[in-house]
Design a protein around this nucleic acid. Structure first.
Length: 490
RNA sequence: GGCGCCAUGGUGUAACUGGUUAACACGCCGCCCUCUCAAGGCGGAGAGUUCGGGUUCGAUCCCCGAUGGCGCUACCA
């Protein structure tokens, strides 16, 4: 932070519980954590669960666990409390409603009665006419009596912010300098959805103010909506915090990092046997931030080193590729640096834990005649990858194309299903039915992809023990590998 | 399409406020060590800094433009 703004800073991360904890959350979390610790500030964890359609109930707990695994501890949050709670946005709806009313009263916002269908139609027209897709402002021009009429007719509505028709908003990004947006390019954002929940834009501004956040350190994808946020701060008459937009982590092809192309779940990295030290170190490499002498000399540093030497102002704004190859090398370095006892300890606490082993044992006891067969029956649980040849995975009456298409369906189904045998079984069967695949074909294909063989312990139970993150990764790798060989065949 | 951000080898970074044979790490290749594979040691290829202008005695670095990449463009965050 700049020298003239010495103060007790307050920063936050605000993950959304919509699935597995994401490496991007860890990256932004790390930087926020470092800034807070370096300045004797506070690091707040806030759960942004305002989207009830994407809400995943197990997600919040997984986020906690992943951040603890990495050692990024927070001072205030839903689990530890704090003076500015609650820290879960779903528990703050009343606050947002009050603030939306304030905006309504001051004329900075208005009710919009347009239906999603109407909006969609307008959007399509605008796209067709190659115009920027924007809210046409229909309800902005509603008279008081028209609004009253709609209200008494109990028509559902959203609350939109009223962006000035002309002029522009300029804000300062601490890494990039001044950024200006013409108001003609800023849409009348929805602030309160028809279900009464706020959108990110309202909730984040209200909470950041109420929680006394001084520095908003978040991902670059938020730059385009920052003018909306600034306008909201102004409408409320609040001071604007400092904004630091961090570069977006990228896939190898430079697109924004995504599960399609890269494992992004922290659960995956943990279960696959990456050490938190290596992950932290690797994330610290992303975008720079460590001084050149240290960076140049070793590239290997600890969280402690980062607290000591990291400087957010050194972050380069270009999006770094999250390069698994280098992460793996780094992880190997950390593994080799362990004492033999510590190394064995790491194995025993993860990939060979009693918990994991005993659950696997429970699957194979009836299938063994000698204990020595254990390895043969369960090796897929311990292999980093298995790649079955077509002789193994291809059903007799199916073409390679339809099989791969079906495997992609399986992936989608698995992705969307709660990770228990009870939930997975009907979900898979139902999907297979719909696609005209027998249960046998269906399960056998999955078995082959997951275990590399047509013989294995019970499939669903195996998947549950192996874990969602790793199972999905294995499916994706399979699909990728097949896509590549298909490319070669052509 | 519109708006915004970004731009150093394949990848991650470095090069003090303009002056270096553009450095380090990963990866790749070769050699050594060695029963194998790793690890380790040694060496090598690979960018003249996206391109074009400008400012300057001198630009990776400053300015302008182009190009490319990415993001946003939701009653998702």
């Amino acid at each position: 932070m700049t020298a003239d703004t010495e103060q007790n800073i307050r920063v936050r991360i605000a993950p959304s519980p919509t699935g597995d904890p994401h490496v991007g959350t860890a990256y932004i979390g790390l930087i926020n954590f470092l800034c807070a610790r370096q300045r004797n500030g506070k690091f707040v964890l806030r759960i942004e669960d305002t989207d009830r359609t994407r809400f995943v109930s197990t997600s919040e707990q997984m986020i906690f666990e992943a951040l603890r695994w990495l050692g990024l501890s927070w001072d205030e949050g839903p689990d530890v409390g704090g003076p500015y709670g609650p820290y879960r946005q779903s528990e703050r709806t009343e606050i947002y409603r009050e603030h939306a009313d304030l905006l309504l009263a001051s004329g900075s916002a208005y009710r919009c009665f347009c239906t999603p269908e109407e909006l969609e139609a307008v959007r399509r027209q605008q796209m067709a006419a190659r115009l920027p897709a924007r809210y046409p402002g229909t309800c902005r021009r509603l008279s008081v009596s028209e609004v009253e009429a709609n209200l008494s007719a109990a028509r559902p509505f959203v609350i939109r912010m009223k962006v000035p028709g002309s002029g522009s908003t300029t804000f300062r990004d601490e890494l990039r300098g001044a950024i200006t947006f013409e108001h003609t390019n800023v849409d009348d954002q929805v602030l309160i959805k028809s279900d009464g929940f706020p959108t990110y834009h309202l909730a984040n501004v209200v909470d950041d103010y109420l929680m006394r956040i001084t520095d908003v350190i978040r991902a670059e994808e938020w730059i385009s909506s920052t003018p909306k946020h600034v306008l909201l701060y102004q409408a409320f008459g609040w001071p604007v915090p400092r904004f630091w937009h961090m570069p977006l982590l990228r896939n190898v092809d430079k697109s924004k990092i995504s599960k399609r192309k890269n494992p992004v779940s922290l659960v995956y990295y943990r279960q696959a046997g990456y050490l938190p030290e290596a992950m932290l170190n690797f994330l610290g490499l992303m975008g720079g931030g460590m001084p050149a002498d240290i960076n140049n000399a070793t590239e290997k540093f600890t969280l402690e080193d980062m607290m000591q030497h990291f400087d957010i102002r050194n972050i380069r704004p270009a999006g770094p590729v999250f390069d698994l190859t280098k992460l793996r090398w780094l992880n190997g370095e950390y593994l080799r640096a362990l004492s033999p006892q510590a190394f064995y300890g790491a194995l025993r606490s993860t990939i060979l834990s009693d918990h994991y082993l005993s659950r696997i044992a429970g699957l194979v006891q009836t299938r063994m005649e000698t204990l020595g067969q254990f390895g043969d029956l369960t090796n897929f649980f311990f292999a980093e990858n298995v790649l079955p040849p077509p002789e193994v995975f291809l059903p007799k009456k199916r073409s390679i194309e339809e099989t791969l298409a079906f495997a992609a369906e399986q992936l989608a189904t698995l992705e969307a299903t709660e990770w228990t045998a009870e939930a997975l079984e009907p979900a898979l069967k139902q999907m297979g039915d719909a696609k005209g695949w027998s249960v046998k074909e269906n399960f056998m294909l999955l078995r082959a992809i997951l275990t590399g063989s047509t013989m294995s312990p019970p499939l669903l139970e195996s998947m549950v023990i192996f874990g969602k993150a790793r199972t999905l990764d294995r499916l994706r790798r399979f699909l990728d590998a097949q896509k590549k060989t298909a490319g070669h065949r052509k």
